[in-house]
């Protein structure tokens, strides 16, 4: 069983990232389940998707302390999901910071010790800078696929399998851009 959480902010495209992952897993013959957030919660709030695949999957939700990977498309959001990580799990964090409302209004400040703290608590922590990759891919919208590309390094699926899944889920005119984004993510450095 593999458990993956994608966390982010409404509009960052966590649902597409999890769809692609589910598609590859399904094509490899795994059972898959996923849970996502719609509606009011999406309006600029914190969002997440849970993806699980394996021989047989019951719950669409991942139990706390059992996620193999927590992928956060925004730096702060990793803190909200870190309790889901299993003791041997890995976190992958995009270092982009999007100020939540209380930070915008000055009522609170954006924590500046996240990377340091996570690294002191989590054995496998990858912080990535996606700015360059997104520039090269030609669209900020590709962030979800760049992050999925980075995650793909740890998963068992081949380049061809990923490519097939992306092609089946992305609108034709965006396929090339997303394939490029995926490759850039797969080769991205982390700190």
């Amino acid at each position: 069983m593999v458990n993956v959480i994608f966390a982010g902010v409404g509009g960052q495209g966590v649902i597409l990232a999890s769809k692609v992952l589910m598609e590859v897993a399904k094509d490899r013959g795994y059972d898959v389940k996923e849970s996502e957030v719609h509606g009011m919660a999406q309006r600029g709030g914190s969002v997440e998707c849970n993806v699980r695949y394996g021989e047989k999957v019951y719950s669409p939700l991942i139990e706390k302390g059992t996620a193999d990977y927590v992928v956060s498309l925004e730096e702060l959001e990793i803190l909200r999901k870190i309790d889901y990580l299993s003791p041997d799990g890995a976190v992958i964090v995009n270092r982009e910071k999007i100020d939540p409302a209380p930070v915008q209004t000055g009522a609170m400040s954006y924590p500046n010790d996240i990377q340091e703290w996570i690294k002191s608590r989590v054995k496998q922590a990858h912080f990535v800078d996606t700015v360059g990759a997104l520039k090269e891919a030609g669209s900020k919208k590709a962030l979800n696929i760049v992050m999925l590309g980075f995650l793909s390094r740890f998963l068992e699926f081949t380049d061809e399998q990923w490519e097939k899944a992306i092609k089946s889920l992305v609108k034709e005119k965006f396929v090339e851009m997303n394939l490029k984004a995926f490759k850039l993510g797969r080769e991205m450095k982390s700190s």
Partner: peptide
């Protein structure tokens, strides 16, 4: 984690 974590409630676009 001791630093206060700012919440991110849904908001108008």
């Amino acid at each position: 984690y001791k630093t206060p974590i700012p919440p991110r409630p849904p908001a108008l676009c």
